[in-house]
Nucleic acid binder design. Structure first.
Lengths: 125, 125
DNA sequence: GACATATATACGTTTATCCGTATATATATT
DNA sequence: AATATATATACGGATAAACGTATATATGTC
């Protein structure tokens, strides 16, 4: 049940009013990502990331998929016009913001390492 | 100094995350309005309205103009693309939301009474 | 200048948000 | 089943937001 779409713009905006949640949305923008990649990239403790992801999910902004031990999050499909407008603006802003760009690039590199770690049984380094 | 435009989306969204501020923006959408019309329409105590208007102003979402005893507020012109996207979506949502429509209509009626009160020296009724 | 009206700010209190830490759950491996 | 890994939730404390009330400022009128 996408809360944001159901006529509660205040809740939508409250969800987007936290810098950490914006950083998470930024990393999810290119595609789906698992929680450990997010914690590693943003250097945040795992419960903090999970809490903010849960908030984004409650707001209907992201969806989750389980694959084995891992949970993969991605941007949700938005039917609601308000959400669409807001997220379009946000996506545009993210592509232009240096810090967000940097974090997305860092994220790519970290995902590489983690996918190695996932496929090989042996830990890297 | 429009804060919202200066790369602080979290602050923009926090500003929009309060139902009272959204109701105020809704009443300001058709055009400029003075504080007393807002308090009368929304049945809120005046300091509450002034505080929220101040917040909207700090975020660069509204501008104010003084005319005699009265302060008139209006939506600010927005150069920032993010703000433009968000406000476009918000305006669209407001036109479709029944409660917001009702409050705008009530606002029109109340403005009529108040402008009478302003022009004539005598209080109405 | 005294008073009235419109609006803004200050102050203390309540309430919501965010965080760190600890713990629970869910899956996979042995 | 015991253990390890990934993620989610629960709990208590700190911080910030919002509120009601009181008061300050600004303008206009007499």
């Amino acid at each position: 049940m996408p809360l944001s779409g159901n006529g509660q713009p205040a809740f939508l905006f409250r969800t987007l009013s936290d810098p950490t949640r914006l950083r998470l949305l930024n990393l999810l923008a290119p595609g789906e990502t698992c929680v450990c990649e997010l914690t590693d990239t943003l250097r945040l403790v795992q419960p903090k990331v999970s809490r903010h992801l849960a908030h984004l999910k409650r707001a209907g902004l992201v969806e989750a998929r389980r694959d084995g031990k891992w949970m993969y999050y991605r941007w949700a499909k938005h039917g609601d016009p308000l959400v669409r407008h807001v997220l379009r603006g946000l996506r545009e802003w993210m592509t232009k913001n240096p810090r967000m760009n940097g974090e997305r690039r860092l994220h790519e590199r970290i995902c590489c390492k983690i996918s190695q770690r996932k496929s090989e049984g042996t830990p890297d380094k």
